[in-house]
Simulated scan of single mutants.
Amino acid sequence: MSILRNIFIRFSKQVETSDHQKDSSLNTHYYKATFNQLFQSIEDLFRQDADCRIATVSKDHGEIAVEINKPISCFLIVTVVTVRPMETAVDFNISSEKFSPIGLYPILRKRLISYYERINKLHTLVRVGKSS
């Protein structure tokens, strides 16, 4: 049953981070920063990325929608939420309509991990996973 599940996951065209992921690298990341600091850093990160175009920014909802052109075209929603003073969570939801004979999940997963790594260089990571 596990092999069949892994095959379905591999061909998934959508990857989402959350506190309830079995894959720990896709768990929500919590940073020592205010909402405004983190939101601005993330917005700047995507504005400076030549492969990305910010489609919409909704600071009121804590969301940034990004169109990604390379290596495959996909759509990303970044959600930034204040958990407590000086602790802010970041989650991603990425999807694509493209098809790949080897499956898109590994490519999309790698992309999300790289975004977390880039944010980790800008802000202090408090923890990965469930909010206490």
Rank of each mutant, 00 (worst) to 15 (best):
K13W: 11
Q14A: 03
V15N: 08
E16N: 14
T17R: 00
T17P: 04
S18P: 06
S18A: 10
D23C: 04
D23Q: 04
D23G: 03
D23K: 01
S24T: 13
S24P: 15
S24N: 11
S25H: 10
L26T: 02
L26M: 06
N27M: 14
N27A: 13
T28C: 03
H29Q: 10
H29E: 06
H29S: 09
Y30F: 05
Y31N: 01
K32M: 09
A33R: 05
T34I: 04
T34R: 09
T34V: 12
F35K: 02
F35S: 03
N36E: 15
Q40D: 11
S41E: 04
S41P: 04
I42F: 04
I42P: 05
I42E: 05
I42S: 04
E43T: 06
L45S: 07
L45V: 13
L45A: 08
F46R: 12
R47C: 08
R47F: 01
R47W: 05
R47S: 14
Q48C: 11
A50R: 14
A50N: 11
D51A: 13
C52I: 08
R53G: 12
I54Q: 11
A55P: 00
V57S: 06
V57L: 02
H61E: 09
E63L: 07
E63M: 07
I64W: 02
I64Y: 01
V66L: 01
E67Y: 09
I68T: 10
I68Y: 10
K70Q: 15
I72H: 11
S73A: 07
S73I: 09
C74P: 04
L76V: 02
I77N: 01
I77M: 05
I77K: 01
T79L: 01
V81G: 00
T82G: 01
T82M: 04
V83C: 01
